[in-house]
Design a protein around this nucleic acid. Structure first.
Length: 420
DNA sequence: TCTGGGGTCCTAGGACCC
DNA sequence: TCTGGGGTCCTAGGACCC
């Protein structure tokens, strides 16, 4: 048996935690650049605000209903997520953190009749210790556990726990769940299934396996097994090291100024290098990309990327920035207004498996030591105060975040103050 | 004025090899 | 008027997830 524990409206709940007066009020959290709505409280959902709606399209609703709005505060969400995951880990040694607000727990070996009680206990413990509401779905496969979680929210959100303990309950849930709400079925597959008269998860289980395989590839075949209660999606008990690491952002303003792009690319490259060091890896190649704004159809469009192989796999900030800027020189063209730039490091290997190049003239040991010291300083301050020159200090490319809340739990200067 | 960012997995088709 | 067959590796693109 597997449990899927999922935080309810996670980002919105995080913000509400430090502003309890917003309890039962509509709350919306925006993406980077305050671009679109990526989290909504139940009350905001009821007002018709959909996931991913551009901010400017809901301005009137925000005014009219006095919706509380926030810019994304990933420092805060990440810290609260860590706290929740630590609590979940106390329930079972085998768990898989699936995303910032979700985790699968392997409950094999626990008493069957106890599982529902265990679910309610998980929910109340997280609520009591961290203050974030979660829902729990329990079933025989990951896909069914996901579905049970969703069913728990739809059916009785207050209770927030659903245990698909026998076939009747599983059927009830399969019947209730539309194909587009099944984990692993997106827009394309949903429309294909519906065209063929398959509307619910139950219908999927009645579709021949070969048909699923033929039209939805092995992904669909695995899904079919999962819905029938046969576990077919692998368990990842240890977080797999990332195979690619990407850092990209929209620019605060459209720009044709190459120096601004340089600064942004340098910072993204530095972030990638830091992420590599944090997971003790090195990359052997880098991809740099720049785009104009595809939504502005009346402006000339340009999008290009370039991949550069390194002589030696590396996670050194200065070196990665150099390669990144070389990439920018290759793809940059005058006369376009750029919207988004990014850096992806590829071919990632463990740092202890790096093969040195014969003609390497960088003192990697010394550089690494220097960067460990830099990382340590930056970590202790909670900001990257020690930076490479090309990263600049002005952050002219900076995106908007006009409704940012405090880093209540990670920065002593922003801690909650209580008047007595 | 204004539309996020970071991932994974799978397949088809081309390049290349013998 | 005719051009093999069987492999591997790589990449681009499409699907999905939160």
């Amino acid at each position: 048996m597997y449990a899927l524990v999922d935080c309810n409206n996670f980002y919105a709940s995080c913000e509400r935690l430090f502003q309890p007066q917003l309890e039962n009020k509509p709350v919306v959290v925006f993406s980077n650049n305050d671009g679109c709505a990526i989290a909504r409280s139940d009350e905001a959902k009821l007002l018709g605000i959909e996931m991913g709606t551009p901010a400017y399209q809901i301005e009137h609703l925000i005014k009219k209903h006095k919706i509380a709005v926030f810019s994304s505060n990933y420092t805060l969400y990440g810290d609260l997520s860590d706290r929740i995951m630590k609590i979940l880990a106390d329930f079972t040694p085998k768990m898989e953190i699936y995303s910032i607000d979700e985790a699968f727990l392997d409950l094999s070996g626990f008493m069957y009749d106890d599982l529902f009680r265990m679910g309610t206990e998980i929910k109340s413990t997280v609520r009591q210790h961290v203050g974030i509401p979660v829902s729990v779905g329990i079933a025989g496969t990951k896909t069914l556990a996901k579905m049970a979680n969703r069913y728990a929210k739809k059916k009785d959100k207050k209770l927030g726990v659903f245990y698909a303990s026998d076939q009747n309950l599983i059927d009830e849930m399969l019947h209730f769940t539309k194909v587009e709400d099944v984990w692993g079925i997106g827009r394309q597959y949903a429309s294909l299934l519906k065209k063929n008269g398959i509307y619910t998860a139950m219908d999927v289980t009645k579709t021949p396996e070969a048909w699923m395989r033929k039209y939805l590839t092995v992904v669909g075949q695995r899904l079919w097994y999962e819905l029938k209660g046969i576990p077919s999606i692998e368990w990842q008990h240890l977080p797999a090291p990332k195979k690619n690491i990407c850092t990209s952002r929209s620019l605060g303003k459209l720009t044709d100024d190459k120096s601004i792009l340089k600064e942004a690319i340098s910072n993204h490259a530095a972030t990638c290098a830091l992420k590599l060091r944090n997971q003790k890896s090195c990359a052997k190649a880098i991809c740099v990309f720049i785009n104009t704004n595809p939504h502005k159809i009346n402006l000339p469009q340009y999008a290009r990327s370039v991949t550069i192989e390194f002589d030696t796999a590396t996670n050194l900030t200065g070196e990665i920035i150099q390669y990144a800027l070389k990439g920018l020189d290759i793809i940059f063209r005058e006369g376009f207004l750029y919207k988004k730039v990014g850096v992806i490091v590829l071919e990632i290997i463990p740092e202890n498996q790096v093969q040195n190049s014969l003609f390497d003239c960088i003192d990697r040991g010394k550089n690494s030591k220097m960067l460990s010291a830099v990382d340590k300083i930056n970590r202790s301050i909670g900001k990257d105060v020690v930076r490479m020159a090309s990263q600049g200090f002005e952050r002219r490319y900076k995106l908007r975040s006009e409704h940012l809340s405090f880093k209540y739990t990670t920065d002593i200067n922003e801690i909650l103050k209580v008047k007595i």
